[in-house]
């Protein structure tokens, strides 16, 4: 994990709410004009976004202008980098995008199914050694992937899974992204137990309570899981680099890496163009799923 965080969906705080939602208090009413704060924030925002915007504009410039123009204004639009980059590797870039989509979809489905099942057990069932199991689950969140990767590689090699997507997807089906188990446990704990009891009185077993009562109510947690799994899998380079070495099966990150080698160091425009293409899905998910992202990440609740 990089800067990912262990989040807790807490219904009492809504990170997406505006400050105006909160009743104003003495300190706030006394606030002075905040021009300075805005100037500072806008400066920071510009610095933060500048490299991204420069990447987009550079993908539209003729190659000989890219590094001589630090500005963002484009006068000669050159769209040719996109088709050039798309066809620069042994396969069209679309096929790498498709490969990534397959891995991402498999990972999302795997995480949704396996993590929600485990979360139900931890949040609602009583069983032997539950404390130990729960502690083990929490500890695996913090375990570095590197202590696992070599034996896993040996295991998957023996199973004949190298150069398939199974090493990337099967672990998700086995709830090894314990972070999401934890996120869902926190969420399920917030669902009133009376609903379970009512269903039980009506004769429902655990399978039905899980499927018909809990799952529909934990849709926000499932959405958060979907979005984070999407982004982290889409960006994941380390395991895809290790398990996928057949160029036909390359996913987007590995293909992009290939680009640096394959491109004679002159066609930077094409490199920029495909970098932009590879970030578009993440950007779209950010745009439409922001609320769930913030909810997931923000309500960590400390302590």
């Amino acid at each position: 994990m990089t800067t990912e965080t262990l989040a807790t969906p807490d219904p009492t705080i809504d990170p997406a709410a505006e400050p105006g939602d909160r009743p104003l208090t003495v300190t706030q009413r006394r606030r002075r004009p905040r021009i300075l704060a805005h100037v500072g924030l806008i400066l920071v925002a510009v610095v933060m976004l500048y490299p991204l915007l420069w990447m987009v504009t550079s993908s539209l410039r003729p190659n000989d202008q890219i590094f001589t123009h630090p500005g963002l204004f484009v006068d000669t639009f050159d769209l040719s980098h996109y088709p050039d980059g798309w066809n620069a590797l042994s396969k069209p870039f679309g096929s790498y995008l498709l490969n990534s989509v397959v891995v991402v979809l498999g990972s999302v489905v795997g995480n949704l199914v396996s993590c929600s099942m485990a979360a139900y057990a931890f949040a609602r069932l009583k069983f032997r050694a539950k404390t130990v199991a729960f502690a083990a689950m929490l500890l695996t969140i913090m375990l570095p992937v590197h202590v696992l990767i070599i034996p896993q590689y040996v295991l998957f090699a023996q199973l004949g899974w190298i150069n398939t997507y199974l090493p990337l997807i099967v672990p998700k089906l086995l709830a090894t992204d314990a972070f999401f188990v934890f996120l869902m446990v926190q969420f399920v704990r917030g669902i009133p137990r009376e609903l379970d009891e009512a269903a039980r009185i009506d004769g429902a077993g655990h399978a039905r309570i899980f499927l018909q009562v809990i799952l529909p109510l934990m849709v926000p947690a499932l959405a958060t899981t979907t979005i984070f799994t999407f982004i982290w899998t889409w960006n994941d380079f380390f395991s895809q680099l290790i398990f996928v070495t057949d160029p036909d099966l390359y996913t987007v990150p590995v293909a992009l890496r290939q680009f640096i080698d394959a491109q004679s160091q002159s066609d930077f425009g094409a490199l920029f163009a495909m970098s932009v293409v590879s970030l578009v899905p993440v950007f779209l998910v950010f745009l439409f799923g922001q609320r769930f992202l913030l909810r997931g990440i923000a309500t960590t609740g400390g302590k």
Binding site: R31, H38, L41, M55, W234, P253, V282
Partner: peptide, 29 residues
Amino acid sequence: RGIRGLAFYRSVLYLPSLLGASVAIAVLW
């Protein structure tokens, strides 16, 4: 501190942390 445009600033400042781990951003760097 109750600043206007909080949602906008937060989005802009948050976006890089989603992209930062990608190969594309490393290439950009």
